[in-house]
């Protein structure tokens, strides 16, 4: 019996370990390659050989010096856009989600159906008319142009609605008796108890913003305005001569998230899984 248990433990762990190794492999290989000249990978692909004596830290120094510190500009752009997107997204989606959950009013179900509709239509269908729209108000190549079309995230509304539905209505009643207005109730009483939901949504929205590629690539045209993903992608042109900063730049763009993740794994996993909450 005991032997059987040990055997099953080894088998189970081995099967999962294979997939876990595959999961972290790309990061491992890119980290190793980031100390080598970038052109080597472009020419030969990723190789399974390690000649550690030739590794240099120079690729990381390039991030600060190359093209007058363009990489730092991408970093700052990514951070600024993420902060705006998370702050506005949290504010608006919690407001709407709470309104849908806590009030009975005419049109409530229709509105909720529309939220579901927005969640279901892939945003890729809309990129073309959204581009024309943003272009017609001269917001191409601006932070506002990146943020505006996603300023009221439907996933967030859905999530806050589910969360607020589970909160006791008595708090609102007692707030009213104490003379709080409806908005006072939201900002002073309900917002504090929705903090766990804000935490989960912050992670989901921040990850989405930090890694988003397609829409920023369309809106942000000049190199100085670009974010990390599109800036790095732009280094891959056939006439590129910045291959050396490609991998060190990619590694440095993931590293902060990885560190934050390893420090708060439970919160992170719960936050990302929050996007799936249904019914």
């Amino acid at each position: 019996m005991n032997k059987k248990k040990i055997g099953l433990t080894i088998l189970a762990t081995f099967v999962v370990a294979i997939f876990a190794v595959i999961a972290i492999m790309p990061f491992f290989f890119l980290l190793i390659s980031s100390f080598k000249p970038g052109s080597e990978m472009i020419r030969n692909g990723l190789q399974f050989k390690f000649d550690f004596q030739n590794y240099k830290l120079g690729n990381y120094a390039l991030l600060l010096t190359e093209r007058e510190g363009i990489y730092l500009k991408w970093y700052i752009n990514s951070i600024v856009i993420m902060v705006i997107q998370v702050a506005t997204g949290l504010f608006f989606s919690s407001l709407v989600g709470y309104g849908l959950a806590k009030y009975k009013f005419k049109g409530r179900n229709v509105l909720f159906m529309l939220v579901l509709l927005v969640m279901m239509v892939p945003v890729e269908i809309l990129i073309l008319p959204l581009y024309k729209e943003i272009n017609s108000v001269n917001l191409i190549d601006t932070y506002a142009g990146v943020v505006l079309p996603f300023i009221v995230p439907a996933t967030g509304i859905f999530f806050f609605r589910q969360f607020a539905s589970g909160l006791p209505t008595e708090i609102m009643e007692s707030g009213r008796i104490d003379g709080c207005g409806e908005f006072g109730i939201f900002f002073k009483l309900m917002m504090p108890i929705m903090l766990p939901a804000y935490g989960a949504m912050t992670i989901l929205l921040a990850m989405g913003s930090w890694n988003s590629m397609v829409w920023p690539m369309i809106v942000l045209r000049t190199s100085e305005m670009q974010t990390l993903p599109i800036g790095l992608q732009s280094l891959l042109t056939p006439y590129g001569n910045n291959y050396d900063m490609l991998l060190s730049g990619a590694v440095m763009s993931v590293l902060p998230i990885l560190v934050v993740f390893l420090l708060n794994q439970k919160t992170f996993i719960a936050g990302m899984a929050a996007g799936s909450v249904k019914g």
Binding site: L232, S253, L262
Partner: peptide, 22 residues
């Protein structure tokens, strides 16, 4: 039967944090 489930869960989750470009 699973040994150190939390470590493997975290490792498996790392791709979700990585940008498509990377």
């Amino acid at each position: 039967f699973m040994f150190k489930a939390d470590i493997f869960k975290s490792a498996l989750f790392i791709p979700a944090l990585t940008s498509v470009v990377m």
